[in-house]
Design a protein around this nucleic acid. Structure first.
Length: 864
RNA sequence: GGGCGCAUAGCUCAGUUGGUUAGAGCGUCACAUUGACAUUGUGAAGGUCGGAAGUUCGAAUCUUCCUGCGCCCACCA
């Protein structure tokens, strides 16, 4: 390396200031085009692909996104450095209901208008403007995080290409009979004025009154309910078939019972779903306003009577007493009527799980409506086998084609997949993929474009946002066209996302992809946990405990932010984040920076570059043979390369990072660099370790490593090769060096506890205090490696002084310890009773370890 | 009601198929300080691994039960 290539120490700032480098580095990466795998150098037969779980265009990125970006970027950068064709596709999600609700709220707050006041066209314009702004913010934040996303392939769940794909998929499913239009009981959100799916419901525990009553004085069976207002829609009473109390009434119909302002007819049916032990053991069946009742009604062919409307009020059909009232008002009205008529047999306070809409907060009402559904269990033939969307979804994971990390979440997956029901996909929202169905009178045509002829109108509804999200791995790669990208990158290598979205998204991706492509969407699912505050609470606006990733990046740098999110958190587990933690990793970033500063400023400019793969003694070319410390650090380096590689392959990111940190700080900086200050001729090794470390750290800390790299190489670190294991493992050196470390530590302890004042004085006289701090290191290395220290007389004095105290103390202490230890081990071994399992091996192992420890102690004593 | 997870140092967590004296970071305390770094260095203190029983020569680790937290799912009318 030529001298002019090495920056002078004075040229490199003492502290690493992330803010002054990061944006420039990212811009250079982006300009290089190397985020696009098509531009990567070399022959890359193996593909690696991740699609970014598209953030919702509802605002800005939070810590959850930052974790996702950090983890995925590590995976992608690692793959890229390992010579894979590494693709990471960015994108955003229109998040129909979430975005729509958000804009509606803003519209109402700022202008006092609803979406119906401004109309479909105007409303959509506003949503798109909002979505665009949000998109721009999100993209900028991804860049700040250092995410090596291929922006040339960026996608949006609602752009033209994805819309086309959605239409093609919808039509195919319709043609295959897997999408149908039907009049069924769905979850209706009266506030959002739309249907919602089961998983968009959140249950809240509320107090309720459980009324037990009879429809009329002469009705033979009493029933219980917390919702008397729905009872005007009852058409049956269901009892268990084995319930002797009611056996006589099964099959009978009680016609024209006057009830709360209307007239009802009740048939008594027997159904095994009824729990005879609950309440009176009889269930009033309201087919139109309860999903379970609708099922019972379907089994028994019962009439359906809708008494709650889309506005959340009682319909005219509900009868004169309650028509027009809200359900809450009607509940009191009916209860009052029952009491007045003396029909109530019991009132009991109870808690009830109230279904509310996740986004709008409205109370969800089951209501029968004409909607579009995806048939979960309908069977069809695929490759000669009878399957269903449900069975395809189950089989992908059951067969091992999709692996979930951590494994325990497979239970959650099956819990959902096994109970998969028909999926209502139509939404009465304006923002989203419009359903490609056209109507003219009784005719229905499913088509992307309007059918021939006049008078066709398109379905006004849009699709559940998860319909298009479920197609994300392949629509981003060009489907339905048969593209080269699709061929190369699908199935994607890994899906990395939060565990909270497993049922929403992951399951649906498997369903859509296995059906449409006959492939799994990804081979592995890696689920990260939630980022909580330092007290373990969820971050939320109301608690005012949100840590904004951009603030952390501005203050401590993206590298530090990434490390704080990745190290110390394991898949599937929530992690806690505090500003102190980020600051801690900023310190580490700075440490690495200063390590490089030291190495670069101390290497000899005449040194040849290290050439690897030759005999150990000559590899580093210098006149001095490898010392113990050299052999030790190289051996450790090899071990770290090997271990970190294995861990990253296994997606053990946290553990890999911790090991690297430990080696970097505790081995390289604290020991080897200190030794290098005294022993010269280590330039090649210093450079070698620095270079390897920089490569190893790059996926975790892309910015600072790229910056360090640029100070001694003219290339782009991002596309450099991942380090490989050299043949430098040297276990005896590691053992021997451990002895030195032990010994040194002991002397330090003696010095610390006994206060060797003379040593301090001499050191002060010599004026070389920095070296004194490590005099013990030098001393022991000098002993073991027979180095001359004659050019540092001051140190010799210090060492001589220390020796007298240290050696005596150590000799006395260790000798006792050794004999006690050997005796204890022998006693232990004598007591071992051999079992039939693995006796010889076990005892041999213990004996070997004992001998090893004894040898270690003996070695120390012989040195003294 | 069903399922899952967690409990290890003051705090946050590692601990890979059971194996010597249970580790790290932060925090605390002591000492150090002009030559890479105070965003630093060297050390120390601090744990009967939630409780009980069991399996084993040996348990933080495996089994059972108990206690305390947390999460997910579910239409108990």
């Amino acid at each position: 390396m030529a001298k002019q290539d090495i920056p002078k120490r004075s040229d490199i700032p003492k502290a690493y200031d992330a803010a002054s480098y990061e944006d420039g580095i990212y811009a250079a990466w982006e300009a290089s085009g190397l985020f696009n795998p098509d531009n990567l150098p070399g022959d890359r037969p193996e593909a690696f692909s991740i699609v970014l779980p598209p953030p919702n265009v509802t605002g800005t990125l939070h810590m959850g996104h930052a974790v996702m970006l950090a983890i995925e970027d590590i995976m992608v950068r690692f793959a890229r450095m390992r010579g894979k064709k590494a693709l990471w596709i960015p994108g955003t999600d229109h998040a129909a209901i979430a975005t729509s609700t958000k804009v509606e709220n803003i519209l109402f707050k700022t202008e006092g208008k609803t979406r119906h006041d401004v109309g479909r066209e105007d409303f959509l314009r506003r949503v798109e403007k909002f979505a665009q702004d949000s998109h721009d913010t999100i993209v900028d934040q991804c860049r700040k995080m250092g995410a090596s996303l291929d922006w040339s392939r960026e996608a949006y769940t609602l752009d033209a290409k994805r819309n086309h794909a959605v239409n093609v998929a919808f039509k195919k499913m319709y043609d295959d009979g897997l999408i149908y239009r039907g009049h069924r009981v769905i979850n209706w959100d009266p506030v959002g004025q739309t249907t919602i799916s089961d998983i968009e419901i959140v249950y809240k525990e509320v107090e309720a009154t459980l009324y037990t009553f009879r429809y009329s004085r002469d009705f033979p069976i009493a029933i219980s309910t917390t919702r008397p207002e729905t009872k005007v829609g009852d058409t049956a009473v269901a009892v268990h078939p084995d319930d002797e109390r009611y056996a006589a009434f099964i099959g009978k119909t009680f016609e024209n019972i006057p009830f709360a302002g209307t007239t009802i007819s009740i048939k008594v049916v027997a159904d095994r779903e009824v729990d005879p032990a609950f309440g009176t053991g009889a269930l009033g069946v309201t087919p139109a306003h309860s999903l379970i009742d609708a099922d019972i009604a379907a089994r028994h062919g019962l009439a359906m009577r809708q008494v709650i409307g889309e506005d959340g009020r009682m319909t005219a059909d509900a009868g004169s007493l309650v028509a027009g009232q809200t359900t809450r008002e009607a509940r009191e009205t009916v209860a009052a009527w029952l009491r007045a008529k003396g029909l109530v047999e019991g009132e009991e306070k109870t808690t009830q799980n109230l279904a509310t809409a996740e986004r709008s907060g409205g109370t969800v009402e089951p209501i029968p409506m004409l909607q579009w559904f995806v048939a979960a269990s309908k069977e069809f033939v695929r490759d000669g086998k009878t399957v269903s969307l449900k069975s395809l979804t189950q089989d992908a994971v059951r067969s091992g084609s999709v692996k979930i990390i951590p494994e325990r979440f497979e239970k959650g997956y099956f819990q959902w997949a096994d109970n998969m029901r028909d999926w209502c996909v139509s939404r009465q929202l304006w923002f989203g993929h419009r359903i490609p169905a056209w109507y003219r009178g009784d005719e229905i045509v499913v088509s992307e474009i309007a059918p021939e002829g006049d008078g066709w109108t398109q379905d006004p509804d849009t699709l559940d946002t998860w319909f298009s999200a479920g197609m994300w791995t392949f629509t981003t790669l060009g489907w339905p066209e048969k593209t080269a990208d699709l061929e190369t990158y699908h199935p994607t290598t890994i899906l990395e996302t939060g565990y909270d979205i497993l049922t929403f998204w992951v399951v649906r991706m498997v369903t859509m992809t296995t059906y449409l492509l006959g492939q799994v969407p990804f081979k592995t699912v890696y689920l990260h946990g939630l980022v909580r505050d330092e007290q373990g609470r969820k971050m939320s606006k109301s608690l005012d405990n949100i840590i904004n990733p951009l603030d952390m990046i501005a203050k401590y740098g993206a590298d530090a932010t990434r490390l704080s999110l990745v190290i110390g958190s394991t898949p599937g587990n929530d992690s806690k984040l505090s500003e102190e933690k980020v600051a801690g990793y900023r310190n580490f970033t700075n440490k690495l920076w200063n390590i490089s500063r030291f190495v670069l400023s101390s290497v000899d400019d005449t040194l040849p570059s290290p050439s690897k793969g030759e005999g150990q003694g000559e590899v580093y070319g210098g006149p001095t043979p490898l010392t113990l410390a050299d052999r030790w650090i190289l051996s450790r380096l090899d071990a770290v390369v090997s271990s970190v590689t294995r861990k990253l392959e296994a997606n053990e990111l946290s553990s890999a990072g911790e090991e690297l940190r430990d080696f970097t700080w505790n081995d390289f900086a604290d020991w080897y660099l200190e030794i290098a200050k005294i022993e010269k001729g280590k330039d090649a090794i210093l450079m070698d370790v620095l270079e390897t470390l920089t490569r190893l750290w790059h996926p975790f800390m892309p910015f600072v490593t790229e910056q360090i790299w640029s100070s001694f190489k003219g290339t782009t670190l991002m596309v450099e090769a991942w380090p490989t294991v050299e043949n430098r493992r040297d276990e005896s050196a590691e053992r021997e060096f451990a002895v030195v470390q032990d010994a040194v530590t002991t002397i330090r302890n003696i010095r610390a506890t006994q206060r060797i004042e003379p040593a301090k004085k001499v050191a002060a006289t010599v004026g070389n205090a920095a070296i004194l701090a490590h005099a013990d290191v030098i001393k022991w290395l000098a002993r073991l490696e027979d180095l001359s220290l004659s050019d540092k007389p001051g140190i010799q004095l210090v060492l001589g002084d220390m020796d007298m105290v240290a050696e005596r103390a150590r000799l006395e202490k260790e000798r006792d310890d050794l004999s006690a230890y050997v005796a204890a081990t022998d006693a232990k071994l004598a007591n071992v009773e051999f079992t039939s399992k693995a006796p010889e091996k076990v005892v041999a192992g213990m004996r070997a370890k004992r001998d090893e420890a004894a040898a270690k102690l003996a070695a120390i004593i012989s040195q003294l």
